[in-house]
Design a protein around this nucleic acid. Structure first.
Lengths: 143, 143
DNA sequence: ATTATAATTGATAATCAATATCAATAATAT
DNA sequence: ATATTATTGATATTGATTATCAATTATAAT
């Protein structure tokens, strides 16, 4: 994980947008980069609380969204569950296998599928920008 | 659309579950089967109100969920938008191209992708049950 | 048929995640 | 230093979904 590069990207994004850097923003980014994949705002907030007891939930929420805006984070919404966020920078695009029993995420990618998706879009006069593919089922442990 | 067959499926599902048929349930199913693809509870409720002015929102909501339970309807959740429901019976599985500008849904299917998805799951010791594939981009009109 | 039972309805309240508001504070420019 | 303006953190609001519950209705039992 190129932590320092991510931080540079964030700082230059702030500058470009006329936004200011703050200690909270630094802590949030730092903690996010160290955190588990697929973290929720709640979870991130709880980890941050230990180091920065005064930090507010709204601040964490706002800034994780900001990180999505600058391409460092990606939001994953599964049904009505809480949004989860994963690192995007230097993290190749992938799709997910999601276990219906234990909730485990497995990251996968198949270039042949990716190509066929583009073709499928084209064939429908549709310009693809991004996509989401989730396969639900049972992981090895749960089946 | 096999409207009468869908109604039979619904009735036998009710019987199997020890539930009762009601005039509201009949109207909701009937209206749902006639309605546009990808309808929200709100929209369905508003259509129903014309014929059944006393029907309640909660009843529509409850029963569209019931139809999902018996395999006649399918819920589509895109991000934080309202859930939409589509007919499932005799409606082949398909995926969606979703226009980011106008919100249009295009239904698509590619058997080669379906096969590769199964293989991809298998290769990860994962037993696929269902999946969701959405390609976001711009439709012909909007691009 | 009449009554007992149990499920359903419809209005409304509760829930819950996401987002907006706003006074106080902090960062930058002047 | 001071003015300007963005950010923070607490809290309120929103908006969708789901739960509650008394009244009603459908079915079973007598």
């Amino acid at each position: 994980m190129a932590t320092s590069e991510s931080k540079e990207i964030f700082l230059s994004y702030l500058k470009k947008k006329g936004l200011r850097n703050t200690s909270q923003r630094e802590e949030i980014l730092h903690t996010f980069l160290k955190a588990d994949k697929h973290i929720t705002v709640d979870e991130l907030y709880n980890v941050l609380k230990k180091k920065c007891p005064d930090i507010g939930y709204a601040t964490v929420h706002r800034n994780i969204k900001l990180m999505c805006g600058c391409g460092l984070a990606d939001e994953i919404k599964i049904g009505t569950q809480k949004a989860r966020y994963e690192q995007k920078y230097e993290h190749e695009h992938h799709d997910h296998l999601i276990c219906l029993k234990c909730g485990k995420f497995i990251e996968v990618k198949d270039d042949r599928i990716e190509k066929l998706q583009d073709k499928l879009a084209e064939a429908n006069d549709f310009k693809p920008i991004r996509h989401k593919m989730e396969i639900y089922g049972l992981c090895k442990k749960c089946s």
